[in-house]
């Protein structure tokens, strides 16, 4: 503990400690976010969005009803529709069970992620399929790390 250490010595000592890494990174983030806070009011929402949300309260598929004919072409506002010739087929597809539910209740729309088919599946599997592939790979790698550490001693 020498009293006359320079500022640079003290700074380099702080950042060389591994435990301070998180602090340092979070600090960087706070600085950028605070500076960026000023620019936020100038960011305007672009009105012409891809895959816009439409809500039709009378439909039994309520929040997810995107219209269209099952097993027919349905216009979907994708980035490059020409790259996905069958875009829209997944959007309109309902499994037989879901179709029966949609005919008889008003609540199938709330569980649209519960069965294959629908707009979310269209985006996740078809038009932006590569995202999902990477996402699954991340899960797979994390799983491999965790299970390796978990079972190492057995």
């Amino acid at each position: 503990m020498k009293p006359n250490r320079s500022v640079i010595t003290r700074i380099s000592e702080t950042i060389s400690r591994l435990e301070n890494l998180t602090t340092l990174y979070a600090f960087f983030f706070v600085v950028i976010a605070v500076l960026g806070l000023v620019t936020l009011p100038f960011i305007t929402y672009h009105d012409d969005q891809l895959y816009p949300k439409t809500i039709d309260p009378n439909s039994s598929l309520n929040p997810y009803d995107r219209g269209g004919v099952p097993f027919g072409t349905t216009p979907v506002k994708a980035q490059y529709p020409e790259n996905s010739p069958y875009v829209g087929y997944v959007t309109t597809y309902l499994t037989p069970l879901s179709h029966w539910l949609a005919d008889h209740t008003l609540h199938i729309g709330t569980t649209i992620v519960a069965h294959p088919g629908g707009i979310i599946d269209e985006i996740l599997y078809n038009t932006r399929g590569l995202d999902t592939v990477v996402e699954t790979s991340i899960l797979f790698v994390a799983f491999a790390i965790a299970s390796y550490l978990f079972r190492r001693d057995n």
Binding site: P52, K53, T132, E135, T136
Partner: peptide
């Protein structure tokens, strides 16, 4: 962002 796309992007974000 409040579009269907945003809803689809939340899933990868959550899983990561």
């Amino acid at each position: 962002v409040a579009t269907d796309l945003a809803e689809a992007l939340i899933l990868p974000g959550l899983v990561v």
